[in-house]
Amino acid sequence: MARVSQEHLDARRRQILDGAARLFARNGFHATSMQDVLKEVDLSAGAVYRYFSGKDELIAAIVKEVLGEIRAAFEDVTRQSPPPPPDILVGLVLGRTLRVWSSLNGDGEPLFPRLMIQVWAETMRNEELAAVLTDVFTELRERWMLAVEAYQEAGMMRSDVPAEHAARTMIAAVQGFITQQALFGAAPVEVLQDGLRALMSMSAARPGA
């Protein structure tokens, strides 16, 4: 019997992950069954279970891949010192991640934001996923802190604000924007960038002071 190439195995695994991600984003983790996944990817149970033992393993694989993409994007855009300004940095990271996961549908549906909402909710009951998410959040917070410190050293950002506070705020801004997209529909990343620029342009002086 002819051996199956690694390229074929990787493509089949990719097919299963992409199909499951579409279903999870549209219907949620708990409303999606393995039978739904089999139908979506048009494969037999044996073909799918060769790669994943069940829905929980599928969910874990997708979550790790999503978070890995965010980590990789952030690493790529923070190689220079100082990094690009916060509005540019956020746009590059979020824009790249949205493009990667939106391509699964090809119809402009905000797949990534809806998937992230499901991930955040799932971590409330799944300790393994909660641990993965915590590790990634901790790493991103530390990377953002390094970026903030580089901004401060370059005179681009005020130095009397703790780096961790600024880092948490930038992460919160991205999470909030993702949530808005999931709840209210797609919006270009430029909306978030423009808002950040406006906030960054404010003077510390109060009117009439």
Rank of each mutant, 00 (worst) to 15 (best):
E190C: 10
H30F: 13
L115A: 04
D42P: 05
F74T: 06
V191H: 09
G195Q: 09
L199Y: 12
R125D: 15
G208E: 07
A131R: 12
R3M: 12
E128R: 12
S53Y: 09
M145Y: 12
G28R: 02
R12M: 15
R158F: 11
E139V: 12
A182Q: 01
Q6N: 14
D194K: 10
L129W: 00
T138Y: 07
R71T: 14
D42H: 09
A31W: 00
R158V: 11
A186G: 11
G68P: 03
D87G: 05
I171V: 15
A130S: 13
H8R: 10
T97A: 14
L94I: 06
V37C: 00
P86D: 05
I70P: 03
G19K: 01
G19Y: 04
D56F: 05
R22G: 03
A163Q: 03
R143Y: 04
A61G: 04
E65R: 15
Y51H: 15
D76K: 08
I16G: 01
G155S: 01
A11Y: 05
A172R: 11
L9K: 13
P82Q: 08
T32A: 01
D42C: 05
A163K: 02
M202E: 12
Q35M: 13
A47S: 13
Q80I: 12
A45Y: 12
A121Y: 10
G176V: 08
S81R: 14
K39V: 12
G54M: 04
A72P: 09
L58A: 04
V189R: 05
